[in-house]
């Protein structure tokens, strides 16, 4: 088994995850939050493909990846739709302003 591409992919997964988590913790813009979520999902997609190849079932990995992409596109669409509504009702996309529900 050729390890080198897997290692590259692993670096990719971890890098995307790092960026995603950092973004999720730091970003205040709702649109950016949705984008960051997509980055996290892409990390997971990459991980699935990688896992499929490591397990010798690359076709399985690929089909999982495709399914995940489709499913999470729906989530992204819903997220963006909500963002539009938020912008319209609250006049802002800042998630820190979106903190009226507390305690």
């Amino acid at each position: 088994m050729n390890l080198a591409p897997l290692n590259v992919a692993l670096v990719g997964v971890l890098g995307l995850l790092g960026i995603g988590m950092y973004g999720l913790l730091m970003t205040r813009n709702l649109i950016k939050t949705v984008i960051v979520l997509q980055i996290l999902v892409k990390a997971a997609v990459l991980a699935l493909v990688m896992a499929g190849s490591a397990a010798g079932q690359i076709h399985l990995g690929q089909s999982l990846a495709l399914t995940v992409i489709v499913a999470d596109t729906i989530v992204a669409v819903v997220g963006l739709a909500l963002a539009i509504q938020v912008r319209r009702r609250c006049g802002t996309l800042d998630v820190q302003a979106l903190a009226t529900l507390r305690r």
Partner: peptide, 20 residues
Amino acid sequence: LVQSAAGSVLVLLSIALILA
């Protein structure tokens, strides 16, 4: 949505680990 989606990414990573 955001919290749940973050959670579902964790599940996907776990699936990848289990598959591997």
